[in-house]
C-alpha cells in the first residue's frame, strides 16, 4: 500500500510494485466494465419506456458463457483460438497505461500514448485476422468493416491525444494528467475541439449507434458482432468482456484527460474515496451523453460512417491547428 504514495510524486515505483498496482487497477476496471454496459442499456431502455434487462445482466451473461464448452469450427486453426485471448490481453495491458483514480498510471514508465494506441490496434488486428480464419463470409465481412472504421478512427484518436499532449509537453499519460490537474482548465478552444473529436472516436470504438449497433444481430448492418459471430462459450465471453473494458477505458481516458478534477494524489483512503466518487460521477455523465446520442440518432449507413469519422478527424486537426494560432 505504501508504494502508492509514490505515484503522485512521480518517483518510479519498483517494477514488481508497478505490476501489482497495474493488475489491481485492471482487475477493478474489469469488474466494473460490464456494469457500465448494463447502466447504458438500462438508460436506453428508460428512453424507450421499457424496463430493460437488469443492471447485472452483463455479469450473468459472462458467467453463463464462461461455463459453456467452446464450440469451434473444424477448419479453425490456432489463429482462431488465439484471437480472443490476445484481444483480451491487449485490453488489460492498455488499462495499465491509463490513469484511473490516481494522478499517475501504474505502468507509465512502460510507455505513453503511442503504446496505448498500438496495443489497441494489435488487439483489433488479431481479432480481425481470427475472423478470417474459419473462412465464413460473415467473419470476413465484419473484419473488413471493423478495419475500415478503425483505420479512420485511429488517426482521429491520435490527433486528439496529441493535442492534449502538447499542453503537457509529454506523451506519457501519467505526466499528462498530472500537468492538466495542476494547471486546471487551459482556457483554450483546442481542448473542447479535441474532446469533441475523441467523443466521436469513443462512439466508433465502442461500437455505439451512429457507427454500429450493439443491440442488433441483423447480419446486414452489424460490424463488430459480425466479426465475432463464429465465437461461442468462453471465447465469446473474453471478446465481450474485453470490448466492455475497452469502452470503459476510452471513457476513462476522456474524463481524466479533459476533467482531471479530484484525482487522488496519494493512497490515503479519503483521497481515494473522493476520487472514486468523482470518477464514477464523471463516467456516469459521459454514459448519459452516449445514451442520449444512441437514443436520438439513427445508425448511419455504412458508407456514411467515413463522413462521421472525417468530422472527427477534422475536429482533431482543427484542435491541433488552433493550438498554434
Amino acid at each position: 500500500m505504501s508504494g502508492w504514495t509514490h505515484v503522485a510524486s512521480s518517483t518510479p515505483l519498483s517494477l514488481a510494485r508497478s505490476f501489482a498496482f497495474g493488475l489491481l487497477q485492471a482487475a477493478v476496471l474489469l469488474a466494473v466494465a460490464p456494469l457500465l454496459r448494463g447502466v447504458i442499456k438500462k438508460m436506453k431502455a428508460a428512453f424507450q419506456t421499457r424496463q430493460g434487462p437488469p443492471l447485472l445482466q452483463g455479469y450473468y451473461d459472462l458467467a453463463k458463457l464462461l461455463r459453456k464448452e467452446p464450440v469451434r469450427s473444424e477448419t479453425a486453426s490456432w489463429v482462431f483460438v488465439a484471437g480472443p485471448r490476445i484481444y483480451f490481453a491487449t485490453a488489460v495491458a492498455a488499462t495499465m497505461l491509463v490513469p484511473v483514480l490516481f494522478a499517475g498510471a501504474p505502468l507509465e514508465q512502460a510507455g505513453g500514448i503511442l503504446v496505448l494506441v498500438g496495443l489497441l490496434a494489435l488487439g483489433r488486428f488479431t481479432l480481425a485476422i481470427a475472423s478470417l480464419d474459419t473462412g465464413s463470409p460473415f467473419g470476413g465481412m465484419g473484419g473488413s468493416r471493423e478495419m475500415t472504421v478503425a483505420a479512420l478512427a485511429e488517426p482521429a484518436l491520435m490527433l486528439g491525444l496529441f493535442t492534449v499532449a502538447l499542453w503537457a509537453g509529454s506523451l506519457n499519460l501519467g505526466d499528462l494528467v498530472r500537468t492538466t490537474a495542476q494547471r486546471g482548465p487551459s482556457g483554450h478552444p483546442s481542448e473542447l475541439l479535441a474532446a469533441a473529436a475523441l467523443f466521436i472516436v469513443l462512439l466508433a470504438e465502442a461500437g455505439r449507434v451512429p457507427v454500429d449497433n450493439p443491440a442488433t444481430h441483423l447480419e446486414l448492418t452489424m460490424i463488430h458482432e459480425a466479426m465475432v459471430l463464429e465465437y461461442a462459450g468462453p471465447d465469446l465471453a473474453l471478446v465481450e468482456w474485453a470490448s466492455a473494458l475497452k469502452e470503459l477505458l476510452f471513457m476513462t481516458l476522456l474524463v481524466n484527460l479533459f476533467l482531471p478534477l479530484g484525482l487522488a494524489a496519494s493512497a490515503a483512503p479519503g483521497a481515494i474515496a473522493v476520487s472514486g466518487a468523482l470518477y464514477a460521477g464523471k463516467v456516469f455523465f459521459l454514459a448519459v451523453a452516449v445514451t442520449l446520442v444512441e437514443s436520438t440518432n439513427a445508425k448511419l449507413r455504412f458508407f456514411r460512417v467515413p463522413e462521421l469519422m472525417a468530422l472527427s478527424l477534422g475536429l482533431g486537426f482543427l484542435a491541433l491547428a488552433i493550438r498554434f494560432l
Partner: peptide
Amino acid sequence: SQNLVILCAAGMLVTAYLMVGQKA
C-alpha cells in the same frame, strides 16, 4: 468566467463544424 467565454465560443465553433458535417 474568461474560461467559460472561451469554452462557449469553442462550443459554437464545434456546432458550426457539426452543421457542416452532418446531413439531417
